[in-house]
Amino acid sequence: MSRFFHDTVVLAERNLVRLPRMPDLLIGFTIQPVMFVLLFAFVFGGAISTPGFDYVDFLIPGIIVQNTAFGGFVTALGLADDLTKGLIDRFRSLPTSRASVLAGRTAADIVTNTLSIAILVITGLIIGFSFGTGALDIIAGFALMILFGYAFSWIFALIGMSVSSPEAANGIGFTLIFPITFISSAFVPVDSMPAGLQWFAEINPITIVVDAMRALWLGVPAGNNVWGAVVWCLVLIAIFAPLAVHRYRRIAGG
């Protein structure tokens, strides 16, 4: 077991060291989210009515959830790339704990997601976002986002190993995650949507997570949303981590 942690740390470190050398990727979780925040806040902000909130306060938890859902794309790209380039074979030929390749990959996402979330919060604070709760709730919100991002990393891990190229991983990831994050309470109040979309948005787990974030950061009454969001993240990990590991064993031919 200690071997597993050791190897996971070595591989997570590798994933992080190489990151600053891929500027195009770095833009994906630094500048791009900032751009989205600014676009939404200033282009749509005036047109979207969010009774009881400033739009910026409404927006920031929602856009952080969307951005964090996307955070794992680095895992999909990285794994697809490692497979095509033969790195996975190299790792598998070493006396390395086999689960550590995926664990090291998703663990690196925790670091990049944290960075990305911090950038978004700072951007939000600059353009007028303010927390409406105490320190513990704010920290709980950060923790929930990191757990949520980690769950999505496993979904992306499965995608990364199920496609033929890094480009395809990117395409599938975006096609999947854009609709489920947009048809939720992330950007607009759900009751402003047409009936069919409203139905989907209400059962959409993203809505549960966004509402949980608003509860933790804005002080909106939470209902069961916070625990619902935590359970939902754990369920995702429980489903997708074993699927990804299984897929890894299969494609690797072992």
């Binding site: 050791h6 070595v10 590798r14 060291v17 190489r18 790195l87 074979d89 070493l94 006396p95």
Partner: peptide, 24 residues
């Protein structure tokens, strides 16, 4: 292998150190 399985975004040293550490 013929596909030169080294991480092209790491330096030569980083590649070898990583492999060494994965050997324990």
């Amino acid at each position: 292998g013929q596909y030169a399985a080294v991480d092209e975004n790491l330096t030569g040293i980083e590649n070898l150190v990583m492999v060494g550490r994965l050997y324990g």
